[in-house]
Simulated assay, not measured.
Amino acid sequence: MQSFVLLTWLTLCAAQDARQRHIANGLTLGAGVLALAWLLWSGTTWLGATAEQGGWAALLALAFTLPGYAKGRLGAADVKLMTALGLATDGRHVLGVFIGAALASVCWLLLAPSVWLHIGQGFRSHVRYLEPGMSKKQPFAPFLLVGLLLTFAWLG
């Protein structure tokens, strides 16, 4: 059930990022506050890791995302999203999501020019910011969603 909630939340974030290249603070900060409240109340993360593991995972998420934010490659919402994910999971999940997102991003950069034309126009209009060549700074949340799916498959 907890995995389904995380997938639903990240799907909402990914959809909004792909459509608007923006993720509302209610989705990122709201989830972060809820994850922190759960962590402090129960002593575990949403997925059952210890509070210490959740804290380290949040710091790991910040270590991965703040350099990209400082260089202008990631947005503030990406930093908040990954930090919230760290508070809700553990370091293995954060590492897996980040690696999976990086792999998905590279695959998309390589495959998108040939695949994009074969995607239905209606769907393309909903995810227009994923269009190849649209921008040097593509939305990252859709790739984080792929990373989370890969991580769940890998970790079971």
Rank of each mutant, 00 (worst) to 15 (best):
G43N: 09
I23F: 00
R21A: 13
A58F: 12
L40T: 07
T50M: 00
G122T: 10
Q20D: 15
L103Y: 03
V127K: 09
R73C: 10
P67D: 04
Q53T: 10
V127S: 06
H93W: 14
S42K: 13
L145P: 01
S125G: 06
A15W: 14
A88D: 00
L27C: 09
L155V: 13
L66F: 11
L117G: 10
W46M: 10
A88C: 13
T11W: 09
W56D: 06
L87A: 07
G133W: 06
T151A: 09
L130D: 08
L39N: 04
G55N: 02
G147V: 00
R19Y: 10
V97Q: 03
L66W: 05
G147C: 08
L34S: 11
H22E: 15
T89P: 11
E52V: 12
M1G: 14
G156T: 10
R21W: 11
G26V: 01
T50E: 01
L110N: 06
L40K: 02
G147A: 01
F143Q: 03
W154T: 10
T44S: 03
V115E: 04
A49Y: 04
V146D: 00
G54I: 00
P132M: 06
W154R: 12
L36W: 09
L60Y: 02
A102Q: 06
D90N: 15
L148S: 08
A14I: 08
W108C: 00
A102G: 14
T44G: 02
F64M: 15
A57D: 06
L34Q: 03
R128S: 14
G54W: 03
P67M: 07
G100C: 13
L10Y: 00
W38I: 10
L87I: 12
W9D: 00
G68D: 08
D90V: 02
A37I: 08
D17C: 04
G26Q: 06
V97E: 00
L111Y: 10
A153M: 14
L74T: 10
G96L: 11
L74A: 12
L60R: 01
L87F: 09
A18R: 04
R124F: 07
